[in-house]
């Protein structure tokens, strides 16, 4: 009877496990081997620094990161962490990075709205004062905040990397409205905009953001080649750090916790065997 049930269950699982073909193709997602993959993964500091530069010089023109402060950049695991400055507010590099950016403030003497150079404790300033202003400058589209974008999209950093490198010329037969750009990695369904063969709908979707990256657009201080691939990879890693800044602490803590639990489990198992030794059960 048991065997029959297991066979039935296996049959059911095989039935369910067969791939369901969707009506339209899935967007292209390219996998990257990240330094932070796996249980021992760590952030690549140089990569985070390059990624911050891409964000600051390219993305920050339209995208806010309002959950981040400059001090975060110098915290443990962050791009500009320096063990000499455990309090990242004292980190001179972070201070100078902040100083280059103007943030809005109120003059304490006159009450006037002013701007001043940022301090490490300041949040990253937003490029637009409010949502209507952001929309007005971007053809009606709202550039999303990037603070936790790497956790807010299926695929995380792989998705961001794929999107950044997924811009293609629209295939003939795909009708795009003005201000739309074809991207093979964007989540979407192009069936209604596709004039060609219905079984060959192109993958991906349309995005309002024009291709943000270009070869040579950012000059990396460490001499890394400034290709679109490199920029995309680095900024994706940076955004993953921004979304999950405690990842390294988490994995290190996890290693200790797992070793402790494993030891405890083995200890309990042998205690169990010993205590139950003389009981028939």
């Amino acid at each position: 009877m048991l065997r029959k049930a297991i066979a039935l269950a296996a049959l059911g699982l095989a039935f369910l496990g067969s791939p369901a073909l969707a009506a339209h193709p899935k967007p292209v997602e390219r996998d990257v081997a990240w330094s932070f993959d796996g249980p021992f993964g760590k952030f690549d500091t140089a990569q985070l620094q390059r990624g911050y530069k891409v964000y600051r010089e390219v993305c920050a023109a339209c995208h806010s990161m309002h959950l981040l402060s400059f001090r975060n950049l110098g915290e443990k695991g962050g791009p500009f962490y320096d063990p000499e400055y455990p309090n990242s507010n004292d980190n001179p590099y972070v201070k100078s990075l902040a100083k280059d950016i103007q943030v809005p403030d109120i003059d304490q003497d006159t009450g006037d709205a002013i701007t001043r150079p940022a301090m490490p404790a300041d949040r990253f300033p937003s490029p637009f004062p409010n949502e209507p202003a952001a929309r007005a400058s971007n053809g009606g589209a709202l550039p999303p905040d990037l603070s936790v974008i790497a956790k807010g999209r299926e695929g995380g950093p792989n998705y961001i990397y794929s999107l950044m490198t997924g811009y293609r010329d629209a295939p003939a037969g795909l009708t795009l409205s003005p201000g739309q750009h074809y991207n093979v990695s964007m989540n979407g369904d192009l069936t209604s905009a596709w004039k060609g063969d219905h079984h060959k709908v192109p993958p991906g979707g349309v995005v309002a953001m024009p291709p943000p990256l270009a070869a040579g657009k950012v000059t990396f201080d460490d001499g890394s080649p400034s290709t679109v691939e490199q920029q995309a990879k680095d900024v994706s890693a940076f955004l993953y750090w921004a979304a999950e800044p405690k990842m390294m602490e988490r994995k290190q803590f996890g290693l200790g916790a797992m070793i402790y639990l494993l030891f405890f489990t083995v200890l309990l198992y042998f205690s169990y065997r010993r205590i139950w030794k003389n009981v028939a059960h």
Binding site: L261, F264, T265, L268, S271, Y272, I275, W276
Partner: peptide
């Protein structure tokens, strides 16, 4: 207590 303890430790893993 010891049998549950062992199972709890496995579950905690």
């Amino acid at each position: 207590t010891v049998k549950d303890g062992f199972a709890i430790a496995v579950f905690m893993l």
